[in-house]
Structures are given as structure tokens and as C-alpha cells.
């Protein structure tokens, strides 16, 4: 069991697993982690299957207390994790004794941190997943973010060996993050100058961004003939452009369909980097074709599969 000592005033920490695909036709998004690679790495560090339920913490992390021995790993954004006040490394399995207090602070670099627990969080699966979809009050802990006083049950699991990820990705995507996009499906609804603006401009990530979508502001993307279409499906990474010419990238908690023109789709392997960008910083879009996108996806998957876990010293002590 894990007790939530403090989760801050905003609903920013949620239980996530790899999500619930297959329900978009009912308007239910997949949810799941925004930065899949960091999430999976955290699970592997504590000996879990990739899809075990853990926490996603946005902007600032919670304070937690272990009520029995377990191991945790913190990946993704740098929230300077401490155990009983002492700094502990990220991307590393950390053994906790009963009574140990873990604190994640505000994100110093990156935007979203992940906490995996050995065994994984035991909340009832809804439609086959433990992921939280807050707008739909579905999954996770009663469909909501963590609150002070919550307790999280963990599945029983052995304490894994102490290990770390060798060469973890940089938490800080930089002042400008470039993400790859495939143009379409409605890119022909924009002027040539509009598409050029989209592919050459720097777009500021706005404060209103969330798990549903990243709202951006930058050079206006001009429509050739109207911004409304007959509503149709929206994919992960779809970039829709309403009448104001400002792009919105739809993410894991997206609506299933929409009626704004779509200029491009951000490649799935770059969603994680976009998810780590902080509001106020910028995003650039770089076009690739489908074949190139698939080649990069294969590379990215191979890199995920190759995540090297290095055992450090002795097996962690049980207490």
C-alpha cells in the first residue's frame, strides 16, 4: 500500500497504464501515459510488465508514503525525487521500507514524471484498462486525480534487483522541440503559404494544454476554403486548425471526432517529447512521408526494446 500524503491543489497526478484502445467508436479515448517510453522504462526498472499501472505526474509531483516494503522508479521529467528528504536518482529502481516518504517536487526539466511501483497499482480495470480518463470520470482511482489521504493498493511482487537505465533520454526537450509530422489528411484545405507557415514557424505551447490536446500559438495557418468540415475521426497526434489559424495537437485523452480541418498528424514516436515540453516554450513541425515515418517508428521501437537496464551492486535489501 502507498499512502498519498499530499497531491497538491490541482488534479495533476493520475493512475495510468498503457491505455484502453478499441473504444474510440464509443467516444472513449485510449488515455494512458503521454510519454510512453518513460512510462515503460519505469515499469521495467521495478520488474513489472510494460503495462502495469503507475502514476503520471504533470508539472509537480505528490508526496507518498510506503506502507510496506516495495520498489519504485521515477522517470520522465526531473522532479528531483527524494526519499525521507534525501535526493535519489531518477531512472533507477529505489527500494523503500515501510514508512519511507517519497517526495516529487515541481518539474525542473520536462513536464511529466512517471512513478512505477513493484507489482503495479491495483485498481479495478474498466473496459480492460486501469488508465484514468478524467473528463469521463473513468478508470484509475474513481476516475479522478489523486488526492491527499488516498491509498493505492499494490499487487504482490518480489523486490527487484537494484538497477538503472543506462543512458536515459534527456528530460529537457529544449527551448524548441521539433516533432515529425505526416501532412494530411486535409492539408489541401490550406493555402500554400499556410502549410509553409506551419512547417517553418515556431509555435508557443499554451498554458491551456492538457492530456486532451496541446494548444499552440504562432504564425497563422491560413485556410484555402473554410475551416469546417463534416466531422470525422481524430487520430493520436492529429493537428487540427480552427478558424483562428492556430494549431491544436490532439493527444491521449482526445475526442474521437471533430469538425475542424486537419493539416497533419504528429508521429506517435514524437508524442512523448511533445508531452515533455513546458508551456511557454516552443514546438516546430518537420514533415516526413509515410515511409520515413514508419522507418523512424521501427527505429524508435527497437530503441525502446533495447533500453538497457544495468544492475547496480547487490540485490536490494528487504527490510
Amino acid at each position: 500500500m502507498i499512502r498519498v500524503l499530499d497531491a497538491g491543489p490541482l488534479p495533476l497526478t493520475t493512475v495510468q497504464d498503457l491505455g484502453r484502445p478499441g473504444h474510440l467508436r464509443y467516444g472513449i479515448p485510449p488515455s494512458g501515459p503521454m510519454d510512453r517510453l518513460a512510462f515503460v522504462a519505469a515499469n521495467r526498472l521495478v520488474g513489472n510488465a510494460d503495462g502495469a499501472a503507475g502514476l503520471e505526474c504533470a508539472l509537480v509531483g505528490p508526496r507518498l508514503e510506503a506502507m510496506r516494503p516495495c520498489a519504485i522508479a521515477v522517470t520522465g521529467a526531473d522532479m528531483a525525487p527524494t526519499v525521507n528528504g534525501e535526493r535519489r536518482p531518477r531512472w533507477t529502481a529505489i527500494a523503500l521500507r515501510a514508512g519511507d516518504q517519497v517526495r516529487l517536487g515541481p518539474a525542473k526539466a520536462g513536464m511529466r514524471a512517471y512513478v512505477a511501483f513493484s507489482g503495479g497499482i491495483d485498481v479495478p480495470p474498466v473496459l480492460g484498462s486501469r488508465a484514468t480518463y478524467m473528463r469521463g470520470q473513468l478508470g484509475g482511482l474513481e476516475g479522478r486525480a489523486l488526492r491527499k489521504g488516498d491509498t493505492l493498493r499494490l499487487f504482490d511482487a518480489p523486490i527487484p534487483p537494484a538497477r538503472r537505465v543506462v543512458d536515459p533520454p534527456d528530460a529537457d526537450p529544449g527551448l524548441e522541440v521539433t516533432v515529425r509530422v505526416v501532412l494530411g489528411p486535409e492539408a489541401d484545405r490550406f493555402t500554400e503559404a499556410g502549410v509553409k507557415a506551419f512547417l517553418t514557424g515556431a509555435y508557443e505551447l499554451l498554458q491551456q494544454s492538457d492530456r486532451m490536446g496541446a494548444r499552440l500559438r504562432g504564425p497563422r495557418i491560413a485556410h484555402a476554403r473554410g475551416h469546417d468540415i463534416i466531422s470525422n475521426g481524430i487520430a493520436l497526434g492529429t493537428v487540427q486548425v480552427p478558424g483562428d489559424g492556430q494549431p491544436i495537437v490532439l493527444l491521449v485523452d482526445r475526442q474521437s471526432a471533430g469538425g475542424y480541418t486537419k493539416i497533419a498528424t504528429v508521429c506517435s514516436f514524437d508524442i512523448g517529447r511533445l508531452a515533455q515540453q513546458k508551456p511557454g516554450r516552443h514546438v516546430r513541425f518537420q514533415a516526413v512521408d509515410v515511409a520515413e515515418a514508419h522507418r523512424l517508428l521501427h527505429e524508435h521501437r527497437a530503441a525502446t526494446d533495447r533500453l538497457v537496464l544495468e544492475t547496480i551492486g547487490q540485490r536490494m535489501e528487504k527490510s
Binding site: G22, L24, R25, N232, G233, A235, S256, A257
Partner: peptide, 12 residues
Amino acid sequence: EMVPSYSALLVY
């Protein structure tokens, strides 16, 4: 998975 709409079908 698939998402049908009025005049399009999104195929994942």
C-alpha cells in the same frame, strides 16, 4: 480499431 463518422472511416 476504427472510428466511423458521417462520410469517413478512420482506420487505426
